[in-house]
């Protein structure tokens, strides 16, 4: 059987399949359906320094092959996470990462500092790309200078693996990726959701309370794939690919495009067993094609 062990720099994962932040809760919600420890990495819900109630509802619109969300980083804050959730996630026998968000650089830094102290959190994913908050969030990730500034500030206080999550809502994503790398990121993950909107023609009103929201699901996959391909050629740190992955074939396309690991997001809503099916499917693909290791297909797109 092919070896799925994945190295994201110095961060070792048992396999390259992770869960995307905001789509997998804190993991235990899926324990009735799968062995969550079989997943390569679990990235928990976006966490901020202070409690956030998130946006008003409606927060979701279904679209052709996807959905638009306007959750707005609802979470109970980092201290609540440390006190009430971390004890439970520590018991999960796989890498658990915290997705860190903020409105100011100080927020990001303070949150990352607190999480740095947690023994069983080997890495953070710095979310500089959330389209659903008024301040901060995506603003940091849409300009190379501010991306550099926030990653640099967090890098100074966070010694473990620092993954930076990029926004697709930019003219040239490779510029932002290079800025993150330059500021000391250990890996980049992409893509976060694409800014979109939905209208109800009968009421002549927007469907979402926030008018615009973040588009995800299979409809974004071609864009995500293209960006992963571009970024993997622009930086030398590992790239984590996500956006619309529904099955193992989708995942393999991301590896071929240059991703070292992948994340599964919206697909968890359709089939809560997607992660383990993708892991099994990757193994079958590698075995059927005579590859010994997942590393044999990374970036092997034949152009």
């Amino acid at each position: 059987m092919a070896d799925l062990t994945t190295m994201l720099g110095s961060l070792q994962l048992k396999n390259p399949v992770m869960t995307a932040s905001g789509t997998f809760g804190y993991g235990d919600e899926f324990a009735d359906f799968i062995d969550i420890a079989a997943i390569g990495g679990i990235i928990v819900k976006g966490t901020t320094l202070h409690h956030r109630e998130g946006n008003a509802y409606p927060r979701m619109a279904e679209t052709a092959s996807g959905m638009i969300n306007a959750v707005g980083l609802q979470n109970k804050g980092v201290d609540y996470f440390i006190e009430h959730i971390y004890p439970k996630t520590s018991a999960i026998d796989t890498a658990v990462l915290v997705n860190v968000s903020g409105s100011t650089i100080d927020d990001y830094v303070a949150t990352a500092e607190k999480i740095a102290d947690l023994e069983h959190i080997p890495a953070i994913e710095l979310n500089i790309s959330c389209p659903n908050v008024k301040q901060g969030g995506m603003a940091f990730g849409t300009c190379a200078a501010s991306a550099y500034e926030v990653v640099d500030a967090v890098r100074k206080v966070y010694p473990k693996h620092l993954m930076v999550k990029l926004s697709p809502n930019v003219t040239d994503i490779t510029e932002i990726a290079r800025a993150a790398e330059g500021a000391g990121a250990d890996s980049v993950s992409l893509i976060n959701t694409l800014l979109g909107m939905a209208i109800n023609a009968n009421t002549r009103k927007p469907v979402l309370s926030t008018v615009t929201g973040g588009l995800s699901g299979p409809c974004v996959k071609p864009i995500a794939l293209r960006m992963v391909w571009q970024v993997s050629r622009a930086v030398s740190i590992p790239v984590v690919g996500l956006g619309g992955i529904m099955n193992a074939t989708d995942a393999i396309e991301f590896f071929l495009a240059g991703a070292t690991a992948i994340q599964i997001g919206t697909a968890n809503f359709i089939d809560p067993t997607t992660t383990v099916k993708v892991i099994d499917g990757i193994t079958s693909y590698l075995d059927a094609n005579g590859y010994k290791s997942i590393t044999d297909i990374i970036g092997k797109l034949e152009v």
Binding site: G25, K45, Q74, F269
Partner: peptide, 22 residues
């Protein structure tokens, strides 16, 4: 009722305003 994506408490798309927040 509310709009739902996951049905199992992970997407936070289906919230209702209560005395205890969303």
């Amino acid at each position: 009722e509310n709009t739902m994506a996951c049905g199992i408490g992970v997407c936070l798309c289906c919230v209702q305003d209560t005395t205890d927040g969303h």
